[in-house]
Structure formats: structure tokens, C-alpha cells
């Protein structure tokens, strides 16, 4: 009885795993099919012959390398800047006592229900005035600090014992020195988690770069892909190769660091 239940549950698990992976695997498979082979009935799951032509076309004629670099530079910059700003603020909220601290923190948390879209029109006008439309900085700026990031780091930094900080202060360490040499190393796990969240979030972001980048040489990968998808509706295999290039970096990052990612997600959820 228990054995049949076990087999049944296992089969259900496998079925959903296959269903989950099928679109991704098909994307990978179609991306190396010769043109036209993905549009046949019945659909082909495996390519009859493998070709890398579509990748070649993307990198030569369609300038995908440029979009890749745009995406990479923007995501890296946002990750580093926001990690610095959020960790400083998260540490201050966790370990300093100053007037209005709790009220300020509560205010920040409560504004998390405001959807980012509300800010986009004035932000666009503001950046336009500053001459930052169609620049990397224009895409980076709204991501420089995040309330969610500050929250995650504060929760983590709360668990650092005060005695450690006091001891360093008695030894004459400056506030910045304490932050750099004690807090940051101790917060490493949450910093890595937040770095992955931020990098992936920025890499996958669509609406804001779509608004800010007006010139196609400045597009990020998702914006470029959406644009190509509009022009190349019939070129299934080419679009699949473009999707693979867009997804691959974040997928590799996730698979390499999934322990940090998933444990960070679970820690954040439990503390809620």
C-alpha cells in the first residue's frame, strides 16, 4: 500500500518535472534546428541535424553581443552599487540607535506596496531633464537602493552580537572600519543571496529599460529580444537561439549558486 503510494507520488513528481522542463528543453533543441524544422507537424523534439547558424546570425548580423554587454554592464553596476548602499543602510537600521529609527524603518517597509510603475512617468521626465535618457546610468539609477535589500540585510545583521562591535570600538576601530572588517564579512551569505537576486532581477527586467533606452544600440537583451520577436515572427529557430542567449547567463548563475539562492529565499520567508 505504502509502496504503490510512493510510486504514484514519484510518477506525479516526474510528470510535473517533465512538464516544467519541456518548454525550456524544446527552446534549446529548436535553437539548433535548421530553419523551418521547428514549424512542422507533428512537432519535432529533437533536431534531425544540428546547426549553429542561428547563433552565428545573432552574433554577426543582429549585434547580440552588444545587447549582451549592455545587459551585463547594467546588471553588474546595479548589483555592486545596491549591495553597497543596502548593506550600509541595513547595518545602520540593525545596529545603531538613532531618533526615529523604528518609525523610519516601518515607513520604508510600508511603501513596498507601491508598484514601481507609479514612479516611472516622473522618473522618465526627471532623467530626461538630467540628460540621462538612453544612457546606462538612466537604467541603473532606480536600482541603486532597494527597500527589500535593506530589509534582508537588516534582518541578518540583527543576529550579529553587539559585543563584537563594542570590542572593536574599544580597540579604536572607526565606524567605517567596523562595517568593512566585521559586518561585511559576517554578512557574506546574505550579501551573496542579495547579489544573485539583484543581478537576475536587473538582467530580466523589461519595462524600465524599454522606456529609458530609445536607441537600439543601447537595448538590453530582453528589450532587443522583444524587438526582434516583433520583426522575426516566422523565424522560430532564430528566436529560440535568441531566447537561449538571454536566459543562459542567469540560468548558469542560478545553477552554480542555487544553494545560496534557495536558502536565502527560505530565510527571508521564515522571518516574515
Amino acid at each position: 500500500m505504502k509502496k504503490t503510494l510512493k510510486t504514484m507520488l514519484f510518477l506525479i513528481t516526474v510528470f510535473f518535472a517533465v512538464a516544467t522542463l519541456t518548454p525550456l528543453l524544446w527552446m534549446l533543441s529548436a535553437s539548433v534546428m535548421p530553419a523551418g524544422q521547428a514549424s512542422t507537424y507533428p512537432p519535432k523534439f529533437f533536431p534531425e541535424s544540428v546547426t549553429l547558424d542561428h547563433y552565428a546570425v545573432l552574433f554577426t548580423r543582429l549585434d547580440v553581443l552588444r545587447y549582451f554587454i549592455n545587459s551585463f554592464l547594467i546588471s553588474t553596476a546595479v548589483t555592486f552599487i545596491s549591495l553597497l548602499f543596502n548593506s550600509m543602510a541595513g547595518y545602520a537600521f540593525a545596529k545603531y540607535r538613532f531618533p526615529g529609527r523604528n518609525r523610519l524603518f516601518k515607513l520604508l517597509i510600508s511603501t513596498m506596496v507601491i508598484p514601481a510603475q507609479v514612479t516611472m512617468l516622473p522618473l522618465f521626465l526627471m532623467l530626461n531633464k538630467m540628460g540621462l535618457i538612453n544612457t546606462y546610468l538612466g537604467v541603473i539609477i532606480p536600482g541603486m537602493a532597494s527597500i527589500f535589500g535593506i530589509f534582508l540585510i537588516r534582518q541578518y545583521a540583527l543576529s550579529i552580537p553587539d559585543s563584537l562591535i563594542d570590542a572593536a570600538r574599544i580597540d579604536g576601530a572607526s565606524d567605517f572600519r567596523i562595517y568593512r572588517s566585521i559586518i561585511l564579512p559576517l554578512c557574506k551569505p546574505i550579501l551573496i543571496t542579495l547579489a544573485i537576486f539583484t543581478f537576475m532581477g536587473t538582467w530580466n527586467d523589461f519595462l524600465w529599460p524599454l522606456i529609458v533606452m530609445t536607441d537600439d544600440s543601447m537595448y538590453t537583451l530582453p528589450v532587443a529580444l522583444a524587438n526582434l520577436a516583433g520583426e522575426h515572427v516566422q523565424d522560430t529557430e532564430l528566436m529560440m537561439a535568441g531566447s537561449v542567449i538571454t536566459i543562459m547567463p542567469v540560468m548558469v548563475l542560478f545553477l552554480a549558486l542555487q544553494k545560496y539562492y534557495i536558502s536565502g529565499l527560505m530565510a527571508g520567508a521564515v522571518k516574515e
Partner: peptide, 25 residues
Amino acid sequence: IYFAPVVTTLVAIAVVWRFVYHPRF
């Protein structure tokens, strides 16, 4: 495996699913 779709890029996935939903192929 179950988590994999979460980390994918929504735009790329929308492009892929446009073909998954193709009426003929």
C-alpha cells in the same frame, strides 16, 4: 527543476511560449 522557470527571463519565455501556443505547430 521546479524552480528553474522562476529564474528565466520573462520576455524570452514569452517568445518561447508564443511558439508553444502555435495553433498548427
